[in-house]
C-alpha cells in the first residue's frame, strides 16, 4: 500500500501536466480559429504607446464580404415551366435583344398532329428575327429576316442585332430540312434604343401651363456649336461612374 502512494501521486502529476498541455493546445487551436485579418491594435488595452499608432501597415485590405449567417433552409424552387405559350422579347441595349419563351405541351402536340408524329424530331428549333421598323407586322407579308439555329433545351436567348433605333419582332418555330419553316410562337414588337444623336434636327416646342398645350414653331438658326460640344462629351460619357447604391466602390 505504502509503495502504491508514490505511484499514485506520480500518475496524478502526469495527468495534471497532460491536462494542462491539452488545455493549452486547445487554446492555441482557438487562436488559430480567429479571423485571418490583421489586427494591428492587438496590444493590451491599458498599455498603449502612442508611437505605435503613428504608422500602421495592414497586411491586406480585402473588401469585407457580407456573409449570410442565416441557416439556409432548402428553398422550394420556382416552377421550371408554367405550361403556357409565350414568347417575350425585350430590348436590352442598342445592339442586343433578349427573348424567353415557353412552348406548351398542347402546342407541341398540335404540331405533331399537323405534321406527323416524327415531325418534331425531324425539324430544328429556330429563332427567326424580323426587322419590322416602320411597318405593321400584321399587315405586311414579306420581311427581311435572320434565322438563328437553337437547341431544343434553350428557352431564352440573347440576340445580337447590332442595330440601334430599329424595331424587331421574332418567332420561335421549327425548320424542316427542305427549309420549310413553321411558326410556333410570335413575340411582341420592341425597338432598340438610339446610340447616337438623332438625325432629326427640326424642332418642336411645347408650352405647358395648366393644360397641356402644344405650340409648334421652328427656330431658324440651330446652334450646332452646342450640339458638337455635347457630342464631343458624349464620346467620353463615363456611363459606369454612376453605379447605384452603396456598392459603387465594392464592385
Amino acid at each position: 500500500m505504502t509503495a502504491f502512494l508514490p505511484w499514485f501521486f506520480g500518475f496524478l502529476i502526469i495527468f495534471l501536466f497532460a491536462g494542462a498541455f491539452l488545455l493549452l493546445k486547445k487554446r492555441q487551436a482557438n487562436f488559430t480559429l480567429r479571423p485571418l485579418r490583421p489586427s494591428p491594435q492587438k496590444m493590451p488595452l491599458a498599455k498603449l504607446d502612442s508611437p505605435l499608432f503613428k504608422e500602421e501597415y495592414a497586411g491586406d485590405l480585402t473588401i469585407p464580404s457580407e456573409v449570410m449567417p442565416q441557416p439556409q433552409e432548402p428553398e422550394e424552387e420556382l416552377p421550371g415551366k408554367y405550361n403556357i405559350d409565350r414568347l417575350v422579347l425585350m430590348a436590352r441595349d442598342p445592339h442586343w435583344l433578349y427573348a424567353y419563351w415557353e412552348i406548351s405541351a398542347t402546342t407541341q402536340e398540335e404540331f405533331k398532329t399537323n405534321y406527323g408524329p416524327f415531325a418534331w424530331g425531324q425539324s430544328q428549333p429556330v429563332l427567326r428575327i424580323y426587322d419590322v421598323t416602320g411597318t405593321d407586322f400584321e399587315k405586311q407579308s414579306t420581311f427581311e429576316y435572320t434565322d438563328i439555329l437553337i437547341s431544343d433545351q434553350a428557352d431564352d436567348w440573347y440576340i445580337q442585332v447590332g442595330q440601334p433605333d430599329r424595331s424587331f419582332c421574332i418567332e420561335v418555330g421549327r425548320k424542316f430540312q427542305n427549309g420549310h419553316f413553321i411558326t410556333l410562337l410570335r413575340s411582341n414588337v420592341v425597338s432598340t434604343p438610339r446610340a447616337s444623336l438623332s438625325e432629326q434636327a427640326d424642332e418642336e416646342w411645347m408650352w405647358i401651363e395648366n393644360l397641356y398645350q402644344t405650340i409648334k414653331y421652328q427656330y431658324g438658326i440651330s446652334s450646332p456649336l452646342i450640339v458638337e460640344e455635347i457630342a464631343g462629351r458624349a464620346g467620353i460619357v463615363p456611363l459606369g461612374i454612376s453605379s447605384p447604391g452603396f456598392y459603387v466602390s465594392q464592385t
Binding site: R194, S196, L197, S198, A201, E203, Y219, I230, A234, S242
Partner: peptide, 16 residues
C-alpha cells in the same frame, strides 16, 4: 442619364 435626353428622337437644342 445624359444620353436619355441627348439621344432623344429629335436633337435637343440645348443638349442636357
Amino acid at each position: 442619364d445624359t444620353h436619355g435626353v441627348l439621344f432623344a428622337s429629335r436633337r435637343p437644342r440645348f443638349g442636357v
